[in-house]
């Protein structure tokens, strides 16, 4: 399950980057950048950012566990934010309705893409920190292995590696 999550995230990351590459390549087509190039870039950015976050957050057999919801929410925010900016007609003018002081399309991007993830992701990170990211036991496992390695080096059983010589 855990490996499956990471493998899927890696494939998604590759696809996302390939989509971004496709978007840029399309800009070189003679006759101007096609409209779909921006859509490809928006899709690639969304997929690659979500994929690399999942790759970092996946934890053994647990995968991303309860982080599915916040990740899905942020992916949705990016879909709606970039999608609305690309798809909605430009109607900004003196009589535009303002949302929290900005015209609708700008408000969706600034408040949606720029602020909503702040409310969700760092809180989700903190709330799942011990179960999903790092516990005191994890730290102790790493320290114990470091002590074993150091003892092996000091007893002459192992050659020190470059980054184990420093005190």
């Amino acid at each position: 399950m855990g490996d499956a999550t990471r493998s899927t995230a890696l494939v998604a990351l590759f696809i996302g980057i390939a989509a971004i590459a496709g978007g840029y390549a399309a800009a070189f087509i003679s006759g101007g950048t096609p409209v779909w190039a921006a859509w490809l870039l928006a899709l690639g950015i969304r997929v690659s950012l979500a994929a690399i976050m999942i790759l970092g957050a996946a934890r053994g057999r647990r995968g991303i566990g309860p982080l599915k919801l916040p990740f899905a929410f942020v992916a949705l925010v990016l879909v709606i934010g970039f999608g609305a900016a690309l798809a909605l007609p430009a109607t900004e003018g003196p009589l535009s309705t303002l949302w929290l002081g900005l015209p609708a399309r700008a408000a969706i991007v600034i408040y949606g893409v720029g602020l909503l993830p702040i409310v969700v992701l760092p809180i989700a990170y903190a709330l799942t920190f011990e179960t999903q990211t790092l516990s005191a036991e994890d730290v102790e496992r790493v320290r114990a292995l470091a002590r074993e390695n150091q003892a092996a080096i000091e007893s002459g059983a192992t050659e020190p590696m470059d980054n184990q010589r420093r005190g």
Binding site: A38, F82, A84, A90, E92, G93, S96, P103
Partner: peptide
């Protein structure tokens, strides 16, 4: 908005590709 509505568009005066870039 009364003088320069494009300024407050979601991409401002950039192309969508430039802003997303």
């Amino acid at each position: 908005l009364a003088h320069d509505p494009a300024f407050l568009g979601p991409w401002g005066k950039l192309t969508p590709l430039a802003a997303l870039s």
